[in-house]
Structure formats: structure tokens, C-alpha cells
Design a protein around this nucleic acid. Structure first.
Lengths: 161, 161
DNA sequence: CCGCTTGGGTTGACACATCAACCAATCGCG
DNA sequence: CGCGATTGGTTGATGTGTCAACCCAAGCGG
């Protein structure tokens, strides 16, 4: 109907393959995380960050930096996670609460992380293989860098931390 | 705190670079689509599919196959888009309505597609370059294939159309 | 001291996605 | 024919993300 395409054929094909890979990988990983452990990708991301910190506790803005989430999204999600007992907001000397992972949260992530890692390995790492994976890593960083540079002026994207 | 990592260092690094690239690219593209043209990524996807069809009209289940969306998501989104005048559900001989792109919808996508394509080229295609892009395309297809194969039995993922 | 901006964080309204339940027509097949 | 299963599609409840507005304390220029 409309003339398109606006990318030439090879580019178009690669781009669409990439998009499909993304969607497939994401939905597959998330589906299993949800089905087998009752965690969403978002829950997982928060728990990973907390569990990797020394003390198991972080300030909200640190999490915000680490995850690249908007602060309101983070705030909403943390209150939900607190209601489910995965984290706790606890007061400390400096005004603002610290976010602490609970026993339950720690147990949850320790349980699901190996399975998740295995899937990433099976469907991503191993399919790429070491060489192509290394190349991807490079390109990915270049792209993040390019976008970061491009946005320095006009958009408040915190990619350039 | 928790011992991790569950992937070794190189794998971990590549995987995280990839995740960050995804997020960065996605939010960047979507932000501009939204800001400059008032369309979401979802709107765009539907409009692209409709505008690429011969007649500018498709059945809902065709769109569902093309986009890999769940039918309820599609249904909800189409009613929203209809309210905004981007598409129309029109009755035809066979029971079920056909989804038709409106003048307004066609105008919208014709306006934004070049800009969108330019961004994809600038931040994705050109950063990869032809060789690495070709490689990515191959790997992406392999990954989709692998997951599709793995899911044939237990999950109703429609990737294997 | 005042008033301003900035930074960390919450809130509410709304858009969107997901899940399960449902509806209606059609198909397969005894 | 009859009836269960499948298909295409809608609906409603609920969980999640986004945007803009707001709150409050601290820093700072005057």
C-alpha cells in the first residue's frame, strides 16, 4: 500500500531479525521467570542489584542509576515489592529510607538465578559462541556510546554516568 | 552479598552490554516517536503492518500473527487506536471485522517513518556496519530458531508460523 | 534572614499489558 | 444429526509504566 521500505533490503532484514530476536528472547526468559518463580523481569533486576551490593541495601537513587529506571517507576515498583515481602524500606540516619533485600527476596533470587543464567547461556551465549559474542559486546557498547553522545545536549538520559 | 556471578565474566559482560543496548535503543527510538509524532512503538507496529498490506486492511488474527501479540492485547489496543482515529474496524461479508488504516493513520505513518528509519540507520545500522550487521542477522535468526525448536512441545509461542 | 533552585522521593491519573473468562460460529466426527 | 473441540474475537480485573505535579529538606546567593 505505502511504498516503503525506508531502509534498504539488507538493513531492513537485519533490523527485523534483531527485533524478533529481542522479543522472542525477552518473552521466553520472562515467561519462565514468571511461571517457575513468580518473579517479573523488573523484580529480578531489582533483586540482582540489591543482592550484588555489599550490604544488601541501597538508596533508591542508586537503584535508579543502576537500572536506568525513572524514579517514579522505581518508587511504584518498590512499594509493590515491599507489599510482597521481597524488600523492605528502612529508615536510617540520613532522611530518605534505604532499600534492603529481605530474607525472602534473597531466597527468591538465589533460587531462580541459576536457572535464569542457564537459559541465557543456552539461548544466547552458546548460540552466539565466543567470537561473535565478543563482537556483539563491542558493538553494543559503541551503540550505547553513540546514543549517549547524541543525547548529551537535549535529553536527560542518564546513560552517561 | 550473594556470591554470583552465574555467568563467567566475559559472558556476563556481553550479556549486560546487550541488555543495555536494547534498553537504550528502545527508549531512544520510542521517546522520539512519541515526542515528535505522538505515536507509541505499538501504534507504529500496527500502522506499519497495515500500510504494508496491499489493501490497507487486515483481519485481526493476521495482525496478531504478524506482530506476535496476544489477541487480547491486540483487541484492546485496536479499540484505543480506533478511538484516536488511526484505524477503523469495518464489517465485511465474513463475520469478523476487518481492520482498516484510516487516512489519518496513513498520514501519521508516512510522516514519521522516514525519521524513524533515519534513526535506526544512524544508531544501529551504521554503527554495526555491513559486515557485523550481516553476522547479527544470522545469529538473530539462529536464536529465534533455537527458542522456537525448544518450545515446540511445551509452549504455545507462535514463533514457528 | 530570605527566597530560589536543586535533588531525592512520593503520589495520582492515565495508558498499556496480561490473564482468565467468556461468546459465537465453525469443524470434525461418531 | 448432535456435540465437543477449535478458532477468532471481546471483556474485565488487575498489575505495571509514564507523565506531571507535588513535597520537603538542603544548598546558596543576595
Amino acid at each position: 500500500m505505502s511504498k516503503g521500505p525506508w531502509l534498504d533490503d539488507d538493513e531492513q532484514k537485519a533490523w527485523r531479525s534483531y527485533l524478533l530476536m529481542n522479543r522472542t528472547l525477552e518473552t521466553h526468559l520472562e515467561r519462565h521467570l514468571q511461571r517457575d518463580f513468580g518473579l517479573s523481569k523488573s523484580d529480578f533486576e531489582i533483586l540482582v542489584n540489591l543482592s550484588e551490593s555489599e550490604s544488601g541495601r541501597m538508596r533508591a537513587f542508586e537503584l535508579s542509576r543502576a537500572t536506568q529506571w525513572e524514579k517514579s517507576r522505581l518508587s511504584h515498583h518498590l512499594t509493590r515489592m515491599e507489599k510482597r515481602g521481597l524488600i523492605r524500606k528502612e529508615a536510617c540516619e540520613s532522611r530518605y529510607p534505604e532499600i534492603a533485600i529481605t530474607e525472602e527476596g534473597l531466597a527468591a533470587i538465589k533460587e531462580c538465578a541459576p536457572a535464569q543464567a542457564a537459559r541465557v547461556r543456552e539461548f544466547f551465549v552458546d548460540v552466539f559462541g565466543p567470537d561473535r559474542l565478543a563482537v556483539l559486546g563491542e558493538v553494543a557498547d559503541e551503540i550505547v556510546g553513540t546514543i549517549g553522545k547524541h543525547c548529551e545536549t537535549d535529553c536527560p538520559l542518564e546513560v552517561r554516568s
